[in-house]
């Protein structure tokens, strides 16, 4: 106790110290309220609810681990939603990194018209998710959509049903996610501009050609940015909600192939009013995201290069 109160005692010993302490707390006051009411209390409440059966209309009833046991043993949709989400993450995140780095590398080669290209690749990022979903429902319309029209007129291919076909619906949303790669491109470009020019000159003198310079200089130098995008991509994939919700009206059709984890959680909470079960789903989501992040972090010392370390 002494160790904890000692700095406070010393702070309060002088007049300016007391004044500083009061000012500090006063300035931070809105957030101290916000933090406790809207974050810390809800975290505690949510842990408690996850061990209860709670339908809003009646007070929560303690059920121990029943929600967690039910999830793993008696809920097929939970497994399906988890599978869909992992499928989406496994394809969309690496593809996003490859395409994003690829475009950024090309844009970084002192190309003419960089601002124009950058704007074009960035524009999709600006489209609100609801508008984006409605737009792609129409682009991917199997009968009258423009993608199948191009496939037929240019390549003579009869396109699939895309969002209407349970085997093509997940590739469709991965394609949509790639359309928004511009956000990552902007971040990669900023990372690329920080790579010291001397490194390229040194590599060139050592006889490295353009491909080798990218492989052995550029890519290692931007691994911290790739690392950041990987983690944000994983977190984003597990929270993927608005787009599949709008595409399917919230039910994950066809054949629940677009039922993603966060959407399922929302349904349990706000459609079926099972707040206890939904809270348990939320905590499992947190644990999954945490474990994924920790695994990526642990692997990072093998592939992420921090200059100056």
């Amino acid at each position: 106790m002494g160790r904890l109160t000692e700095p406070l005692r010393r702070q309060l010993a002088t007049r300016t110290g007391r004044q500083d302490q009061i000012n500090g707390i006063l300035f931070a006051l809105p957030w101290l309220l916000g933090l406790s009411i809207l974050i810390l209390y809800p975290i505690g409440a949510s842990i408690y609810y996850s061990f209860t059966e709670y339908s809003v209309l009646r007070p929560p009833r303690w059920v121990g681990l029943a929600n967690y046991i039910k999830m793993f043993t008696a809920d097929d949709v939970f497994w399906l939603a988890l599978y869909n989400t992992v499928y989406f993450a496994v394809f969309s995140v690496p593809l996003g990194i490859i395409v994003g780095v690829g475009i950024a590398l090309m844009l970084n080669m002192k190309i003419k018209g960089l601002p124009v290209y950058r704007t074009i690749y960035f524009l999709p990022v600006l489209v609100p998710e609801v508008a984006l979903s409605i737009l792609w429902l129409w682009v991917l319309n199997s009968q009258f959509g423009i993608l199948n029209a191009i496939l037929w007129e240019v390549f003579g291919i009869v396109g699939p049903g895309w969002l209407a076909d349970e085997h093509w619906s997940k590739p469709s949303v991965i394609l949509m996610a790639l359309w928004g790669v511009g956000q990552a491109v902007v971040i990669y470009l900023a990372g690329l501009q920080d790579v010291p020019k001397e490194l390229y000159d040194a590599a060139a003198i050592d006889g490295a050609n353009a491909v080798k310079r990218i492989r052995h200089v550029t890519i290692p130098m931007i691994t911290p940015v790739i690392f950041f995008n990987l983690i944000m991509g994983l977190i984003g994939a597990f929270q993927y909600f608005t787009i599949p919700y709008v595409l399917t009206g919230g039910d994950g059709k066809p054949a629940q192939s677009l039922m993603f984890y966060s959407m399922y959680l929302y349904r349990r909470a706000f459609v079926m009013l099972e707040m206890g079960y939904a809270s348990a789903l939320a905590w499992l989501l947190f644990i999954i995201v945490l474990v994924c992040t920790l695994l990526v972090f642990r692997s990072s010392n093998r592939w992420v290069y921090y200059a100056g370390r």
Binding site: I39, A282, L285
Partner: peptide, 9 residues
């Protein structure tokens, strides 16, 4: 912490 955790309370 994902917003889904605090969303319900």
């Amino acid at each position: 912490i994902p917003y889904q955790v605090t969303m319900i309370p």
